[in-house]
Design a protein around this nucleic acid. Structure first.
Length: 240
DNA sequence: TCATTAAATTGTT
DNA sequence: AACAATTTAATGA
């Protein structure tokens, strides 16, 4: 418990290029889009900054414009458990926003990030007035359910290469994280934090995946070549 | 814009 | 965990 990190950077209106990075804006009609765009707030988060914390009241529905966040929680023994990373294009917290309950997770920036927030009242207004928005949120929740089931599977795998592969596949999910595209900006150290392995082991796994032409390792990021293979882990037998 | 230097990231033991 | 090698970012003329 040293220095308390700031809750977030100062909030400001969203710039135009930042609005373009918000996937659900395009399902709204012009009137709704114009109204909502004015209410979206954006903040720059530095590594370690909290976007939201457990037990705090809901203020916003959040989305990642750029950067990388992690979702975690502290258990009774005081240990931090990391659940997932959130790359660009990802929106989260709709569960708590829907119920107007306190946040159940900590969301922290893993690197310098740009985070957008839609006030909960506006979130509810959209639910009441836009069918497209409802469809987006429903689709989002459904897709995440699939991810959590996959995450349980990942946790039970003992093969580190498989864990890295499946965790990567989750981050490359085009529905949940449309801002990622082909190239995921993430360092091997950051990925190691998310997967729960050492950087060395992650490096080894990544090179194995690269050798199978499933991904390409780049400086400061990873490029998917075969998302299906990443998901199914068919390459895991060591063909030598 | 280019060259130099510092910082970040990766590869390896 | 330590260290060398490589890549990018920052600086200043």
């Amino acid at each position: 418990m040293s220095t308390e990190p700031s809750l977030h950077g100062r909030r400001r209106p969203a710039r135009n290029d930042e609005l373009l990075a918000i996937p659900w804006l395009e399902v709204l009609d012009e009137r709704q889009r114009e109204r909502v765009a004015l209410e979206i707030k954006v903040s720059d988060a530095l590594p370690g900054d909290f976007i939201c914390r457990t037990a705090r009241p809901v203020t916003y529905w959040f989305g990642v414009i750029d950067g990388l966040l992690k979702m975690s929680t502290d258990n009774a023994e005081g240990q931090t458990m990391t659940y997932t990373g959130i790359p660009p294009g990802g929106w989260f917290g709709e569960g708590t926003a829907l119920k107007r309950e306190p946040y159940r997770y900590n969301i922290q920036a893993l690197r310098s990030s740009i985070v957008a927030g839609l006030p909960v009242d506006t979130f509810h207004w959209l639910l009441d007035h836009s069918i497209g928005f409802n469809r987006f949120v429903m689709n989002q929740i459904n897709e995440r359910l699939g991810q959590f089931i996959a995450a349980r599977e990942i946790d039970r795998m003992n093969n580190p290469d498989a864990r890295v592969a499946r965790s990567l596949a989750a981050l490359f999910n085009p529905v949940l994280y449309p801002g990622v595209g082909e190239l995921l900006r993430i360092t091997q150290q950051e990925l190691a934090y998310l997967v729960g392995l050492s950087r060395q082991r992650v490096n080894e796994a990544l090179n194995a995946l690269q050798a199978q032409s499933v991904i390409r390792v780049e400086y400061g990021g990873l490029r998917v070549l075969d998302l299906g293979a990443l998901r199914s882990s068919i390459f895991l037998k060591h063909p030598r």
